[in-house]
């Protein structure tokens, strides 16, 4: 098709009035033909400047109140007014709920992502032929092993008198940052404890227990470190391990 024929379509194209079947080939032509593209650009500029120039006059406050009263006089009476008393607050609540939901949804999805990633790490570790790099039940062996491998130190709890046992540890990576992963066991349930430096992705997470993809989880911050406990053990066991870790010295 010659440029002249495309040009006739330019205005409807820019006005969004062409069907996709027609606008796609024109769009393709515009990407190839600098002359038509320049023409299109000029038309867009004209549209834009008209849009800006066209919104020129503002009504006076008096006219606004006159019109509002005129219209309202016919409508807000009797049953409608009663309905409004109910409907308006109901709408406000609905809108607020919607906004809150959207906000929470975003928060939730960020949180969900963190937990999903950690759950994946946990599962992948247990499925691995060598789940841990340092195999030891002794915290005094495990803790020094991490030295020089991760950029922080941490304390592990004394497990004597509890049902937990330490299986070992490995270096884990969470969003390109290295941290410690410790595997604990209680009654044949494995639990991963992740320790990472606190940062933007995790700092918004509220502390506390949660349930994620059939795992029970717990998270908190301590001395600038973010702890995650995740496993298929009962919430009570997760809590118990959490308390042990929080009180570790």
């Amino acid at each position: 098709m010659a440029c002249e024929e495309w040009r006739g379509e330019l205005d409807p194209y820019l006005d969004g009035e062409l069907a996709p079947a027609e606008s796609a080939p024109l769009g393709a032509h515009l990407r190839r033909c600098p002359v038509c593209a320049a023409d299109a650009l000029e038309r867009v500029q004209l549209k834009r400047s008209l849009q800006r120039a066209g919104m020129r006059y503002e009504p006076s406050a008096e006219l606004r109140s006159k019109i509002t009263k005129m219209v309202a006089a016919r409508s807000t009476s009797g049953i409608v007014r009663q309905w409004r008393l109910v409907l308006v607050p109901a709408l406000v609540v609905l809108v607020a709920a919607f906004l809150l939901n959207a906000y929470l949804g975003r928060e939730r999805s960020a949180r969900q992502r963190v937990y999903s990633e950690l759950a994946d790490l946990h599962v992948a570790t247990l499925a691995s032929a060598t789940p841990v790099d340092v195999v030891s039940t002794d915290r005094h062996t495990v803790k020094p092993w991490f030295q020089g491998k991760i950029p922080f130190t941490f304390n592990l709890p004394e497990l004597t008198g509890s049902e937990f046992s330490l299986m070992g540890g490995r270096v884990a990576y969470f969003e390109q940052v290295s941290g410690a992963q410790l595997i604990y066991q209680i009654r044949k349930h494995e639990i991963s404890v992740f320790i990472f430096p606190e940062r933007a992705e995790t700092s918004g997470l509220p502390s506390g227990a949660a349930n994620s993809e059939s795992f029970n989880t717990e998270t908190w911050t301590q001395n600038g470190l973010r702890y995650f406990v995740i496993g298929d053990a009962s919430p009570a066991d997760i809590q118990a391990l959490t308390r042990l870790l929080q009180n570790a010295t």
Binding site: G54, R56, I67, A72, R74, G78
Partner: peptide
């Protein structure tokens, strides 16, 4: 009355634009 209420909801949001158009 319900009709009138919906008229208000439909027509009042157009006020600023209608005035601008009228002035032009």
């Amino acid at each position: 009355r319900l009709r009138a209420a919906s008229f208000e909801d439909l027509a009042l949001p157009l006020f600023d634009q209608l005035y601008n158009f009228a002035r032009w």
